[in-house]
């Protein structure tokens, strides 16, 4: 028997309703700022900021990071960084209301160990980090916002992220099913 709190924590909003809300938020964001949503950009800014702080002379010379360093603005003073701070806060609130905020734990299929899950989560994150630089955005900035604004690159990113996921899904099925 499940307890009531467990039941409650598994209750999510209707996915189509969630999608409509997300679509309206994206529309509203484009209407105000002229750009869509994003996520990987904030991590990139963190990398730029760390290197800029730890090894400033290197950051200025570094071919990739120097693209994102300007004399007028600190790397962390960036729209996507503030938006991402908001993501944490908003997700925390939602989780709190739904009873999903609990002490640190690893979510994994019962067929694998927490250690295996953490190794693959790290590797997956590294790949997503690398891929999002090539894609000039991730699922939010490239696929979602890019497709909605009719950018060819955004549409391609969407098709390729999900297409490639299906292509490789067979090899990693033991992690999930």
């Amino acid at each position: 028997m499940q307890t009531n709190t467990e039941d409650r924590s598994k209750r999510y909003i209707n996915p189509y309703f969630g999608g409509v809300l997300l679509g309206l938020l994206l529309l509203f964001t484009i209407f105000i700022t002229g750009r869509g949503l994003g996520a990987s950009g904030a991590v990139k800014s963190s990398v730029v900021a760390t290197v800029d702080r730890v090894a400033p002379s290197y950051a200025v010379k570094q071919d990739y990071l120097k693209k994102f360093i300007s004399d007028t603005q600190r790397p962390m003073n960036n729209w996507l960084v503030f938006e991402t701070i908001g993501i944490f806060a908003g997700a925390f609130l939602s989780g709190l209301f739904a009873g999903r905020v609990k002490k640190f734990r690893v979510e994994h299929s019962p067929k694998i160990t927490p250690k295996t899950r953490l190794i693959y989560a790290t590797l997956g994150g590294m790949l997503f980090g690398i891929g999002s630089q090539f894609g000039r955005g991730c699922t939010s900035g490239a696929a979602l916002s890019g497709t909605a604004t009719m950018a060819t690159a955004g549409f391609l990113a969407m098709i390729l992220i999900f297409g490639s996921g299906y292509m490789f899904a067979y090899f990693f099925r033991k992690l999930w099913i």
Binding site: Y120, G124, L127, A157, L160, I161, S164, F168
Partner: peptide, 16 residues
């Protein structure tokens, strides 16, 4: 980038 991200998605179970 898209292909690498898809691989990262199915291995890591998240996007950023």
């Amino acid at each position: 980038g898209g292909v690498i991200m898809g691989l990262g998605f199915v291995m890591g179970g998240f996007c950023p």
